[in-house]
Amino acid sequence: MSELPRRHERGGGSGLPQIGRRAFLGGGLAASLSWCAGLRALPASAETLAAASPERFFSRSETEILTQIVERMVDTGVPEAPPVRKTRAIETLDQLMRHADPAISGQLPLVLALFEWGPFVFDLTFSRFTRMTDAEKDASIRAWMTSSLTLRRMAFTALRNLAFLGYYSRDETWPLIGYRGPLLARRTP
């Protein structure tokens, strides 16, 4: 699969995500970079990502991982809940990251890669996140949430909060929780 241009290639960066101490050092630098390399071979879901463009922050494969993480994080079990892929939750996050300070956003691709390969690396499961069943995904996420490694729990929290930011900022999710929305009319689409 050919990769689209990424934010790291748009100036200012080294071409690889910065690995700050707040990111994820558990597996070591070399291992982290090899996981990232592996990530690039992931197939993308056409359903989600038809619109991937050079302006996007997340690559196709990163978007698919993020989408599947968000789907499990905000799973409500309520039939009328808008599916993540039917909302603009992921596009909202992509846009936020595109305009975010690289000191914040630069670590995300690495975290996504580690989430994808977490089942294999941490839990010794011969699978990766995007190929798991929903129940297996939930178990994998729970392993991050309850990990004894602080940095692993931090990565969970970061992705969890991103998921909530993407989903619960969407107007169509508000009826689920009884939020009536801003008093100001929206100024931009």
Partner: peptide, 18 residues
């Protein structure tokens, strides 16, 4: 709080969180 801030303060994920 509002939905995003409130959701980030509640523990867990998925159906437990909802």
């Amino acid at each position: 709080g509002f939905p995003v801030l409130t959701s980030s303060l509640l523990p867990g994920f998925g159906r437990d969180h909802y």
